[in-house]
Simulated assay, not measured.
Amino acid sequence: MTHSTRRLVAAGALVVTGALVLAACSGGSGGSGDGDASGDAGSGDLTPVKLQLQWLPQGQFAGYFAAQEQGFFEEEGLEVEIIPSGGDIVPQDALNNGDVDYAIAWVPKVLGSIEAGANVTEIAQIFQRSGTLQVSWADSGIDSVADFEGKKIGSWGFGNEWEIFAAMAEEGLDSSTVEIITQDFNMNAFLQGDIDAAQAMTYNEYAQLLEAVDPETGEQYTPDDFSVISYEETAGAMLQDAIWADTERLESDEEYQDTTVKFLKAAIKGWVYAAENPEEASEITLAAGSAWGPSHELWMVNETNKLIWPSPDGIGYIDEAAWNKTVEGALAAVNETGARLISEEPPSSAWTNEWIEKAHDELADEDIDLTGDGFTPIDVTLEEGGN
């Protein structure tokens, strides 16, 4: 089967995110500054808190927007400002610099920052599973990472690539055997035939393919058109969206410690709300500024929920085995320039379950499903263009 024509035509159906990056909001100045999250209240007796996201408003962060919109933060005495990024703000840097109080970021990205001197600590692992995929055409012959040899493999870079290189290392592959192609945050290069296998997230870029139209049939693509490798099923799987806090303040500031537990409790309630009310959660993120269409946004919330639930030890709990696997992958990964993500084990201060366990304990008497035992994803129909 020849795909060159369909790629060129279908590429125009995808959303180009470059303009969104330029439009991303800045964290600005005058945040927590020297970092007192328990300082003067921003509204009445509420404690002002700044949360730095790692991307633009979208279903990936539905739980935090739901916690804000449903009043869960306010119930805990917090006034939370949710600050988007778009590639222009590195969350862990904003946190380390004292510009914000908490940050959402992938674990491998922060491991590199910690080795470079960032004094931050993971306090909750929201995503229990990796959502990263490598997508190729069904007839490409690329059915596993071992099949990358001699192929053009798309990678976003910017710290999103380390699962690819960790999985390749396990197969004995490197940039001398695999051609790494820098990929934009969309699927255009794949549809145009510039790369053999594209990096994608279950909740975003994969949906972009399924909502695009195959010019040969006039119908939207289906999963049967693609071969999908999930990094969760490989040695390269790494922990992704986690909540990070300031290490020094966690160790010495009792008011920050108290705020941390309150923040986690409200965030938990937000994510439980998103699991139980995905349609409403998608409407909340759309209202918060997401630029995606409604069916794409609902898909995103639903797929994000799948990465969180079930959480056998309770939402946000950091599984030591998964953490160690992430570290092992980070130590093994070597990118196309020959650079390594980290060269040694991170310090013990890099993560702790102390604060999420306290949040769980304080929520124990409330009627909240912390493990997601009853979670069932919904069926979402992607409309053309995500509309």
Rank of each mutant, 00 (worst) to 15 (best):
Y64D: 03
E354Q: 12
G71M: 11
Q60P: 00
R7K: 15
T376H: 05
A333S: 14
G63I: 02
T47A: 15
L239Y: 06
E69D: 13
S230G: 13
G316F: 07
L14Y: 05
T259N: 15
V107T: 13
A212R: 06
T326E: 07
F226K: 08
T202Y: 07
A24S: 12
A67Q: 07
E179I: 10
S38I: 01
G131K: 04
I318K: 01
D184I: 02
V15Q: 10
E328L: 06
S282W: 07
Q70P: 04
I123K: 06
A19G: 12
G150E: 01
Q199N: 13
F61S: 12
V15G: 07
I318T: 13
S29E: 14
F190C: 08
C25V: 15
L14N: 10
L20P: 00
H3D: 10
E383A: 09
N305V: 03
G44W: 01
T352H: 05
A67C: 12
G44R: 05
F226L: 09
W292C: 01
D174F: 03
I104F: 09
D184L: 12
E216T: 00
G293W: 08
A291M: 05
Y102M: 03
F61D: 14
M300N: 07
G131T: 13
A245F: 01
E354T: 10
N324W: 04
E255M: 09
Q52F: 08
Q68H: 09
E248Y: 02
G27M: 10
F73N: 04
L14M: 12
E216Q: 09
G154L: 02
G329W: 05
W55I: 00
Q192S: 10
F165G: 01
L8N: 11
Q68V: 00
S343I: 03
D253A: 08
T326V: 08
G172Q: 01
N97I: 08
T217K: 00
A321R: 12
E366G: 12
F73V: 05
T47P: 02
G289D: 02
D93R: 12
V49I: 15
S38T: 02
G289C: 00
A235G: 12
L363W: 04
E248N: 06
F148P: 15
M300Q: 11
Q220I: 03
Q199M: 14
S176D: 14
D367E: 15
A67K: 08
T304Q: 08
P84W: 05
D34I: 04
E255C: 02
D379E: 15
G172C: 03
A62N: 09
T337Q: 13
T2A: 14
I126N: 06
E75Y: 01
D194W: 01
T381F: 07
S227L: 01
K152G: 04
M238K: 06
I181T: 06
T182R: 08
